[in-house]
């Protein structure tokens, strides 16, 4: 299995541990990632709320590069995933937008390079049985709330690898590595990522809601598949509990950090030192230390 890898800006900075753990887990599972050379920012929310032509052209620049590699694209960031898929959808369904994107980028593009999220590839291409077969240290005693966030499953006519309201792929993956995925109702509630810088008080309210519901459902940690979700729930957790009431400190880990630990990778291989809320209690439960 071979993919053109699109890391995206967050995985180079605030989410470097997601990049490191993604590369380590893919290597351990035999998934080959070839970086898209000179990839550029997908434009994220600032582009699609400012300039419609730009919001299609920036992802298209990357898809044109991937096209010449002859590989499907894999990305780990839920926001990049959404922007790349949306650009494909626009180019495929709107001839006027397609020619606009081709004029802006100066190159042809037919909208047909496949774009996949890492979670989709792990569960649907590789399969949870293949992951289970490589588990060396099952995450017994770990109760995890699988948090999909907004853009991994929405809108379903554009992303569509799991159910938009009640997704289960992350639950399947983490169950396969020995963890217990708790049932909880906020799997796809938004953390307010795009307001993180401008209206952090709203993000604190939303993060607190998610964290307290996960705790009420019996989880002792959260799993995420998006660098923006991680930042809001982990880095801002102290602000959220200060503003809206105490909750026990709740580690928030990327799916690749949890999978990597189960595969027997080291704490450093999966970048645990980048977490703000210490995962120590969780590690103690599986007989490891920080």
């Amino acid at each position: 299995m071979k993919y053109a890898f699109f890391p995206g800006c967050s995985l180079e900075s605030t989410g470097w541990d997601f990049e490191r753990s993604t590369r380590a887990v893919c290597q351990a599972l035999g998934i080959e990632l070839v970086d898209i050379p000179d990839w550029v920012c997908c434009g994220s929310t600032p582009a699609h709320t400012t300039n419609a032509s730009l919001s299609v052209a920036l992802p298209v620049m990357n898809l044109q590069k991937a096209k010449s590699m002859g590989l499907p694209v894999l990305t780990a960031c839920a926001s990049c995933y959404s922007r790349l898929r949306t650009a494909n959808h626009t180019v495929l369904n709107d001839p006027e937008e397609r020619s606009r994107a081709e004029r802006v980028t100066g190159k042809p593009y037919d909208g047909r390079v496949e774009v996949r999220h890492l979670l989709d590839v792990l569960v649907n291409d590789l399969g949870v049985d293949a992951v289970r077969a490589k588990v060396r240290r099952p995450l017994k005693n770990v109760k995890v709330a699988c948090y999909y966030g907004c853009l991994l499953t929405r809108p379903p006519n554009i992303v569509a690898f799991d159910d938009a309201e009640h997704p289960s792929s992350m639950d399947q993956l983490l169950t396969a590595i020995g963890a217990e995925a708790v049932e909880w109702p906020f799997k796809t509630e938004c953390c307010g990522a795009s307001l993180s810088i401008t209206r952090s008080e709203i993000v604190n309210r939303l993060s607190h809601r998610l964290l307290s519901m996960a705790r009420q459902a019996g989880a002792d940690c959260l799993a995420v598949a998006c660098p923006l979700c991680e930042s809001n729930l982990d880095l801002r957790q102290a602000d959220a509990t200060k503003a809206h009431g105490a909750i026990p400190e709740t580690p928030v880990l990327y799916i690749t950090q949890l999978v990597g630990l189960a595969l027997g990778l080291s704490n450093k291989d999966v970048g645990l030192e980048a977490l703000t809320i210490s995962p120590e209690p969780l590690l103690a439960g599986i007989g490891r230390d920080l």
Partner: peptide, 28 residues
């Protein structure tokens, strides 16, 4: 935590991106 770098990690396609911004502005 190494989550912010002090210098930009420029893309090798930065010049093309600047052109795309200009043309996207004209299209809008």
């Amino acid at each position: 935590k190494g989550k912010l770098s002090l210098l930009p990690k420029k893309s090798g396609s930065a010049k093309e991106v600047a052109d795309v911004f200009r043309r996207a502005g004209e299209e809008e």
